[in-house]
Simulated scan of single mutants.
Amino acid sequence: MRQPAGRSPRRSGGERKPREERWAELIEVATQIFYEKGYDGASLQDIADRLGMLKGSLYYYIQSKEDLLFDVISTVHKDGLAVVRARSEIEGDPLQRLENVIRGHVEHTCRHLVPTAVFLHELSSLPIDRREEILGSEHAYQGVFRDLVHEGQAAGQVRPDLDPRLAALSILGSTNWVYRWFRPGGEFSPEQIGGEMAEMAIRGIATDEALRSRAS
């Protein structure tokens, strides 16, 4: 059963937090509320109550509930994208870098289950143009995986019969699903899951020669 975060006590005027700190807290609380109740079931009053502030005060930061969902999902996407981009830049051949990216994506997902769930469940609640604004015209997150598959084909490490976009979607589809069954403190650690899922993905797309090279 989902457990709500604790409600913040109301603060007097002299105890107001800096705007940046309050904004970060707003995003965190809104993410939790959207997770607990879903976007349609959540209200700005729910979020204001959890923050210990008046509903009207939220409009200092946002214009609507849709704007808040947009900011929440943008934050989740930006944080995850930073992780996979950083992993893709670690020195190595395309398959090594793809392995790093898959590991990073899975580990990040396991450690941020609530934001991941909100992103995957509620992205479709936004209008198409706002979804595209987050994802980018080239789907930047997917693009990190797709580009590495393409580089692997150019290096002779990835099977040439595969479509890079379909391969990227397949990898993301399987790894994204981790959020549905991973349990913190359970039998498998984020690192173990990331390592095994990366190994399975690489074995599914690599050429025989590349697999032999990795084994040696």
Results as ranks from 00 to 15, higher is better:
residue 9 P to L: 13
residue 13 G to R: 14
residue 16 R to F: 04
residue 16 R to D: 10
residue 18 P to K: 10
residue 25 E to Q: 14
residue 27 I to A: 06
residue 32 Q to I: 02
residue 36 E to M: 15
residue 37 K to R: 15
residue 38 G to N: 11
residue 42 A to D: 05
residue 45 Q to G: 04
residue 47 I to N: 08
residue 56 G to K: 11
residue 57 S to D: 13
residue 59 Y to W: 03
residue 61 Y to S: 11
residue 61 Y to I: 09
residue 71 D to L: 15
residue 72 V to F: 00
residue 73 I to T: 07
residue 75 T to M: 03
residue 81 L to Y: 09
residue 82 A to G: 08
residue 83 V to N: 05
residue 83 V to D: 08
residue 84 V to Q: 06
residue 85 R to D: 02
residue 90 I to E: 15
residue 96 Q to I: 04
residue 99 E to L: 01
residue 103 R to F: 03
residue 106 V to K: 01
residue 108 H to Y: 15
residue 130 R to V: 00
residue 132 E to V: 12
residue 137 S to M: 12
residue 138 E to N: 10
residue 139 H to W: 07
residue 139 H to T: 10
residue 140 A to L: 13
residue 143 G to F: 00
residue 143 G to I: 05
residue 144 V to R: 03
residue 154 A to H: 05
residue 156 G to F: 01
residue 174 S to F: 02
residue 181 W to K: 06
residue 182 F to Q: 08
residue 182 F to I: 13
residue 191 E to Y: 03
residue 193 I to R: 01
residue 199 E to I: 01
residue 200 M to T: 13
residue 201 A to D: 02
residue 201 A to S: 11
residue 202 I to N: 01
residue 208 D to Q: 09
residue 209 E to I: 00
residue 211 L to R: 12
residue 211 L to N: 08
residue 212 R to I: 12
residue 214 R to A: 07
residue 216 S to T: 13
